[in-house]
Each structure stands twice: as structure tokens, then as C-alpha cells.
Design a protein around this nucleic acid. Sequence first.
DNA 1: ACACGGTACCATAGCCGGAC
DNA 2: GTCCGGCTATGGTACCGTGT
Length: 219
Amino acid sequence: MIESEWREAMFRLHHARGDFPHHMHFIGRGGGRSRGGPGGMFSAEGGRGAGRPSFVRGRKFGAEELQLLLLSLLKQQPSYGYELIKLLAERSGGFYTPSPGVIYPAMSYMEDVGYVSVQPEGSRKRYAISSEGERWLEENRPAAEALLAKLEMFARQSESFNQAMREQRQVFTPQLMDALHALRGEMHNWHQSSDEAQKQAAKILTEALQQLRALKDKS
DNA sequence: ACACGGTACCATAGCCGGAC
DNA sequence: GTCCGGCTATGGTACCGTGT
């Protein structure tokens, strides 16, 4: 077996099944726990990379959470892998757009364990939930419904955020919006700076704030 | 305490095939 | 030839365990 095949096999096995050898802890079936553990952003564990801002980048769902979501979508209608990615993005208001490297191994695993059936259509694969998949989904219905509800909650929050941004653009000049954007971007680079550097940055920002207040008072 | 290696997870680049 | 959808391969990031 060449390296890439081995890598893929291991990836599929561990990623999709959810029983990562060292540390993976999943809600529900299986899985001993050890280091890290994805669990997904909605689980208590927080997972690998917990403690850093994983909201933007990082695993948002544990393997089983993702499988439940995918089966929920497939129960509504059989879909291609690419369609599932788009559906998840759509249902979450763009908040969660899984990469193909997450979806396809998960689908391959669910095919292996019989949760989905696969109908090749030319170069594409159409996935459909199987009776075994339906049974597992039914067993985990509360968790699946909670995940879908949270996905929709994020979609609403995302829409609310976008609305606020649109309103900001209507009120502020482009120059001010650019400056705000640049400031936000700059602050992202500061989270690993030394305490002393951060104190100096805070001092600069405080002085700038005072100047802004003085300017506003005059205008 | 530190360096290094192994591991997990994701995003992205790029390939392939079909439609136009 | 170009575009697009579907998919695969690979590199980057960050964590933890182990050895020194």
C-alpha cells in the first residue's frame, strides 16, 4: 500500500468512525477518551485546539455529530457529496461550510458501515440513507434535532451580524470602515504578543479613544 | 524546560470528467 | 477551449507525549 493510500485509510478510519486511537471522545457510542478529543464545538469537550479561538477555524462538529447531520439531510433527500457541503453551508447561513476532506471520508465510512447506500451516477455518487442509517438516526434523534436547531440558530445569528454590518456601511464612510477593518485585523496579530507589548498597545488605544471622544465633543 | 515527533483536523490546490 | 461540479491529495496548524 502506498503512503497516500495508507494515509487515506487511516484518515477514513479514525476521522469518520470517531474512535481516534489516542484521545477521541465522542458523545454516544464507543470511544475511550484520552488526549484532546474533538467532540465538536457543541460538545462539552471542545476538542483539539480548545482554548484557542476555534470558532472561525477548527473542527466544529465531532465525527458522530457530523454523521447525524449528514444522515438528517439525506433523510430529507438523497444528495451528492458536494450538495451536502452546500446544504450544510446554506442551513447554517454560511457559518459551517465543511471542506470536502471532511465530508467524503465521513460518507465513505457511513457507506462502509451501511448507514448510507451509494448510487454511482456517471462520475458522481448519490448518497441515500439506508434502513440501518435510519435506525441509528432514530436512536439519536434528540441529538440530531439539537444539532439541526443549533445550526439554524447560527444561521440566524449570522444573518443578524450581516445586517449589523450592512447598517454600519450605510452609516460610516468607507474610510472609517477601512480603518475599523484594519484595526480589527491588526488586533488578531496581537494575541500572542508579550504582556509588555500588549500593555503598550492598550495605552495607545486608550489615548486614541480619548482623542476620538474629544473630537466627538467638538463636532 | 525544551525539542522533537506523532497525531488530528482543516483548507486549499488541483485533477478529472461532463456540459456548453 | 472554458466553465463548473465532484472529488482527491497535500500542506499547515496546533496539540500532546516522550525523550533528553
